[in-house]
């Protein structure tokens, strides 16, 4: 088998809100089937980076590609086809508030799969069971807790078996058991389907358990503070700030 292609690349990328640059000179790539954690202090631009990488926001400079395609220079059906092969968990879960959890998961399947209704139902139930929501399928988003909404959001991100999943703080609001199960799920999905995962997280144990690579965003310099394996950040010398971020959290 040939070496896996880079599913995600960015070169000299600048991101921000409006015309205000939050981070620039971001350059890294991620091979298919790998798990990348984006870490950094709150407000440093992690979610903004993920939105730019996922094609939801225009970058303020530089270039990024997803599955070999520059989404910001691609339009129409080609762009939609790439976006359909990615899943996105938003920070606030962004569930459709008028639909039950089951209907939330079924919605993308109904739109894009030709499968019969019964199979779509089966798939939705299975995906909700994967995130431990087998008992809450017919509840509305307003009737569940924040942690449950997060898990339902993950199930919806996985609905179409995406090649790449963006997870914005997937463990936030989850109990340690659920968080551990989620880590296991991410690893099993990668193992079974080669799913690539980009996640924003503050949970150091979870990052150490799952991530192959880690990008540390440094708000002081406005660019990447370090890029490497999470375990390498545990040793002093690589990047003092990234090291402090990891070890401080470990001490806490």
């Amino acid at each position: 088998m040939s070496a896996p292609a880079d599913i995600l690349t960015c070169a000299d990328l600048a991101i921000g809100h409006g015309q205000v640059v939050v981070m620039d000179r971001l350059s890294f790539s991620l091979a298919a089937g790998k798990i990348l954690a984006v870490v950094g202090p709150s407000g440093c631009g992690k979610s903004t980076l993920m939105r730019a990488l996922g094609g939801l926001d225009e970058p303020l400079g530089g270039r990024s590609t997803l599955m070999g395609v520059d989404l910001h220079a691609t339009h129409g059906e080609e762009r939609a086809a790439i976006l359909r092969r990615t899943g996105f968990l938003f920070q606030g879960a962004a569930l459709f508030s008028s639909l039950t959890l089951r209907e939330n998961i079924e919605m993308p399947m109904r739109e894009f799969l030709a499968a019969p209704r019964k199979e779509i139902r089966q798939l939705a139930e299975y995906k909700l069971s994967l995130v431990g929501l087998a008992d809450a399928m017919d509840k509305l988003p307003s009737e569940i807790s924040g942690g449950m909404a997060k898990r339902a959001g993950i199930a919806r991100a996985m609905a179409l078996d995406p090649d790449l999943i963006f997870l914005d703080e997937p463990s936030a609001g989850l109990d340690p058991m659920s968080s551990g199960r989620l880590d296991e799920l991410i690893l099993r999905l990668r193992e079974a389907f080669g799913t690539t995962v980009v996640l924003v997280s503050h949970e150091v144990p979870s990052i150490l358990r799952t991530a192959d690579f880690c990008v540390y965003l440094d708000p002081d310099t406005g660019t990447m503070g370090a890029y490497g394996s999470p375990k390498s950040f545990l040793q002093a010398g690589n990047s003092p700030k990234a090291h402090a971020f990891f070890t401080q959290a470990r001490i806490d």
Binding site: L130, A134, R188, A192
Partner: peptide, 15 residues
């Protein structure tokens, strides 16, 4: 094994 694990990790509904 990878198929087994994807079935086993799915949690059953309590009822």
């Amino acid at each position: 094994p990878r198929l087994q694990s994807l079935v086993q990790i799915a949690e059953k509904a309590s009822s």
